[in-house]
């Protein structure tokens, strides 16, 4: 019972300063989240939620608690897992063999709805994850998926021409490296373990984690210390 398939991307990012008053600068106000008629899905969600509460199946507290749980799962949590795998060979071995158990060792409970597998990028194989049927994603670790992960364009194109899609993300996979697409069609959710970048010897787990982006754990990015340095 979450609202995670409910994206409101209104493209109203305003980077410029606002000086309203007298300069003739006008623009439409940002649309309120709940302005206008509800969509059919919003009506459906509200109706079912109200019925479940009225009939005592769920309480509002339980729904809020589940939303809080989902909000506590973020790419930063996944980055900690990756950094630990880079730093601790025994943990990495367990993560590869028993992802659920390794995450539990870090205090991360992935629940019972799906199993997790970790797939490791190597010098020979670059992995990328998709769900062509819907939007299966390791939510109990990484939180809600990005909107593009659920888009028809990504879901259909990454299986047909993954190298072109990866290139659009800025990932150039050399000809000699296999691209392996993982279509998470069933009960398993996939976490990509990226390769530890060269030049990061001696880095602390926290500093390593700062390199690991959400997309790196989907397979659509490569951790890059140069980008981190440029951002500082």
């Amino acid at each position: 019972m979450t609202h995670d398939d409910h994206d409101h991307d209104h493209d109203h990012d305003h980077d410029h300063d606002h000086h309203h008053g007298g300069d003739g600068h006008t623009h439409p106000p940002q649309r309120d989240h709940d302005a206008g008629p509800m969509s059919a899905y919003e009506v459906l969600e509200e109706t079912i939620r109200s019925l479940l509460i009225d009939k005592g199946v769920l309480s509002a507290d339980e729904i809020a608690a589940q939303i809080d749980l989902m909000d506590s799962r973020t790419p930063a949590l996944g980055a900690k897992v990756v950094a630990k795998a880079w730093s601790d060979p025994a943990f990495k071995a367990k993560l590869m063999a028993d992802t659920r158990g390794a995450l539990l060792d870090m205090g991360i409970d992935i629940g019972t709805l799906a199993e997790f597998r970790t797939i490791e990028n190597t010098p020979d194989v670059h992995n990328v994850v998709v769900c062509t049927l819907c939007s299966c994603y390791p939510k109990l670790l990484l939180g809600v998926p990005p909107a593009w992960y659920k888009s028809l364009a990504y879901r259909s194109r990454v299986v047909v021409d993954p190298r072109a899609v990866l290139a659009e993300f800025g990932v150039a996979v050399p000809e000699g490296v296999e691209v392996r697409v993982h279509d998470s069609t069933a009960d398993l959710r996939y976490l990509v373990l990226p390769m530890r970048p060269p030049g990061t010897e001696g880095w602390s787990p926290d500093k390593l984690a700062s390199l690991v982006t959400r997309d790196a754990m989907i397979g659509t990015a490569i951790p890059d210390p140069g980008l981190r340095a440029a951002a500082e």
Partner: peptide, 19 residues
Amino acid sequence: ELWPDYPGPASDHLEADIY
């Protein structure tokens, strides 16, 4: 095997979970 006109190297693969 999936796409006769696949534009990438012949060693590329796709994996899926099938019952």
